[in-house]
């Protein structure tokens, strides 16, 4: 499981990083999306995996014993991260649209050049 997860983390990070280093803003957008997937997986891999653990929904029978459950903290971290990354992506989308509208290009370098002229 550890190897599998880290392999998928590798895939997501490698392709995400490759995309954000492109000139095309659309690709950058896709890249950030992949990166946030990768980060979330990275975080959840910190909680480890074992076939016998339970999701962090408490079961009456175990009382206060924490040992049957999986670590809830990474999950709580990721949950808000997912929602916020949606908000940020939406913001990026609109930023890109307005940028394209004003400059007529999707190229990151040219956008910066346009700013200098003003």
């Amino acid at each position: 499981m550890a190897f599998l997860t880290s392999f998928i983390v590798f895939l997501l990070f490698a392709s995400g990083l490759y995309l954000i280093m492109q000139r095309n803003l659309f690709e950058v957008l896709l890249g950030t999306n992949l990166l946030s997937h990768g980060t979330n997986l990275f975080l959840i891999s910190m909680s480890g995996w074992h076939p016998d653990t339970l999701p962090p929904i408490l079961v009456e029978a175990f009382g206060h014993d924490p040992s049957p459950y999986v670590d809830p903290v990474p999950q709580a971290l990721i949950l808000t991260a997912i929602v916020i990354s949606f908000g940020v992506t939406a913001f990026l989308v609109v930023l890109m649209m307005r940028g394209v509208e004003e400059t007529g290009t999707l190229e990151a370098g040219e956008l910066a050049a346009g700013e200098d002229e003003e």
Binding site: S6, V9, F10, F13, F42, S47, G48, T53, V70, D71
Partner: peptide, 24 residues
């Protein structure tokens, strides 16, 4: 990008392995 991916994968694997025994 491949370096970055590898680094993150190695870190993830390391974190995974070290918590595997403790967390349950």
């Amino acid at each position: 990008s491949v370096t970055g991916g590898l680094l993150m994968a190695v870190l993830s694997h390391a974190g995974f392995a070290s918590t595997f025994k403790n967390i349950p």
